[in-house]
Design a protein around this nucleic acid. Structure first.
Lengths: 358, 358
DNA sequence: AGACAAGATGATATCGATAACAATTTGAGA
DNA sequence: TCTCAAATTGTTATCGATATCATCTTGTCT
């Protein structure tokens, strides 16, 4: 048996754990557990004096509220779930940050998961999340398995789909049209005189936003009468910087007269530009390149990369705001679409003047 | 009243929510709730036939297990908490991915938070996490507020500190010495003939790993008799690509004869190199630059950046593995230190041959 | 002074699953 | 065929907080 008389260990260590409950705090203070519970919520009616005494006891005893117990009786988990394709992609981690920031001081906590661009993984994650009874859920995109849709419908919580404009929205939407955004970029560059367009993207439709960008590209090039675009598919999405470099090599081998190459994201665009530079080509003098997403790198690198700026952080904030609103108003059925902004950011990599760099 | 005879809505919508409980599934199948509960756990003893019938009912009814109720009685929350400084930094999101991957199929779920490099924010988050009664917690670094340490000790759960080697570890450690890693980089470059070393880092000690790298730099430069290093502090950590560019300008104005500049991370190194390029300087011909962290960008950009490769993903995996081991063995006190690997990656940006690039 | 509203606090039932133990069935070996 | 262990299933209490309703103060207004 341990010596219980030795009150202080020189160093605090795990293992001293006592299962402190609210009831024990209550006994210590000389009130009921219910009063302690009230002291933890700002809206409850407890006298200032009692709350102070309780909080002192909480501090002294080192009590930490147990939300899992509370959420059972209050029937509110205090969770919001969000699924993004990848947390290593700064566009999506910006969105996650937007969600977290919007949730601050709401008493809601974010449960984050990443689907790795797979609808099956998404389905699994949705189930795992729903087991925690989140009060709302934020998804990326509009492609979900049938079972995922069924589970979501049954859950009876507000759902926000983001980053796209799904054809058949589940509930709320906060996003933009990836295909129109890419179309805008094509038209902008065409108006600057570019005629021979190439495109670099991934090989499969796993990345639905990527597919939408691709189709926006293709459609617009044809509408403008600039023939079919020169499309190169390279690698399973999300395609990396390195694959961007390999892809542009293929593209230029096949269609050496290409004037400008649009990429599914800034990362592949950057890889493409670096590979060109390495091979002695100058961007934009020999070939112009544009990306999508306006990652930090694109405004810093040399040459700076033309791209579409997307309000990633705002998507997160607005998605969370929509959820909060739905929770407050109690409505679980509103089908609202919030369009988020995007804009073309013209930079050196497509500069028609094509001033030889350096 | 709604027409309950119409069995299928054309489109499933939230709002159909029924509070389905295990007891109702049990009644539907004709067994007890306990048996349904058992059917959900793989180790429990239920006949295959019963489990099948139960799972069919679960499917038919659309029941989703409620873990919050279960964790109350089983006294196991099924959560692991992890705090990282930032999820927008790919080094840390790699670590988060490592943790998530290691947790797969363990029935444990990750609760992720980001501290924004602040010990106060960390303290708040630790409390918020502990309210969910995680079974273990993973922290970044070894600097915590006194109250945070107290709460952790009291929680009685295994704690893993990562990415550093704290002087006074709480419990488990999975990391490496940032100062020795930086020292290794200095010595490696010194052995290649570099003599006049500069350093770019942030202005405050908020980023403890950054501070350690800085002191490792300073110490080693002095040990090698290369005088005090030329240090530029620029911006509140984490310093951005852009700040890296601004910093190298300051540094070269003040010490124009600097031969090589080490940066607290690859991101600032990249910014520095791009700014130099933009100003007509060639890297490494006119100035050599190195980073830290081996971000994807460093192996792609031109010139490729010399750096320290850190096993970010492995840190996450090993931290989670250590936690799992502690949970299995029931020990909550083991003070083990797991060293993770790092290595110098020499690339073009410090190539002594200094071949003019392009 | 009496009445009543507002504020503070307490008692009890309950959220939905699971631990722990009890009861029952099944099957193998004697 | 009988016995006993293993496998299967059921019963009841419980996890720790909170909803709900009841009770008790306090102060104000007539």
């Amino acid at each position: 048996m341990k010596n219980e008389d030795e009150p202080k260990d020189k160093r605090l260590k795990p293992g001293d754990a006592q299962k402190l409950t609210m009831a024990e705090v209550a006994k210590y203070v000389g009130v009921s557990a219910m009063t302690v519970s009230r002291a933890f919520r700002q809206d409850a009616s407890v006298s200032e004096e009692t709350r102070k005494r309780i909080m002192e006891a909480v501090d002294a005893l080192g009590y930490v509220l147990d939300l899992s117990a509370g959420s059972l009786s209050s029937r509110r988990s205090g969770f919001i779930a969000a699924l993004v394709p990848s947390i290593n992609n700064s566009n999506f981690s910006d969105t996650a940050r937007g969600i977290t920031d919007a949730l601050e001081n709401t008493g809601l906590q974010l449960l984050l998961g990443y689907t790795d661009y797979s609808a099956e993984k998404e389905e699994e994650l949705i189930e795992a999340m729903l087991r925690r009874r989140p009060e709302g859920i934020i998804l990326t995109g509009g492609s979900h398995t049938a079972r995922a849709r069924r589970m979501l419908a049954k859950a009876g919580i507000p759902v926000v789909e983001t980053w796209e404009l799904p054809e058949d929205p589940i509930n709320h939407v906060v996003g933009f049209s990836n295909s129109e955004a890419m179309a805008l970029l094509v038209r902008t560059l065409a108006s600057q005189g570019y005629r021979k367009f190439g495109y670099i993207g991934g090989t499969t439709a796993r990345d639905t936003r990527g597919s939408q960008r691709r189709s926006g590209f293709q459609k617009t090039v044809e509408e403008l009468g600039l023939g079919p675009g020169r499309m190169i598919s390279f690698g399973v999405p999300p395609i990396t910087m390195e694959q961007g470099g390999q892809a542009i090599v293929s593209l230029l081998e096949r269609w050496p007269d290409t004037e400008v190459v649009l990429c599914v994201s800034d990362l592949s665009a950057f890889g493409a530009i670096m590979e060109c530079t390495r091979r002695g080509m100058k961007v934009p003098r020999d070939i112009a390149v544009a990306g999508f997403g306006d990652y930090e790198i694109s405004s810093i690198c040399h040459p700076r990369i033309t791209t579409i700026n997307v309000d990633c952080y705002g998507i997160g904030r607005q998605a969370a705001a929509r959820l909060l609103h739905a929770l407050q108003s109690g409505e679980a059925t509103g089908d609202e679409i919030t369009l988020t902004s995007y804009r073309v950011v013209l930079r050196e990599s497509t500069d028609r003047a094509g001033a030889p760099t350096v």
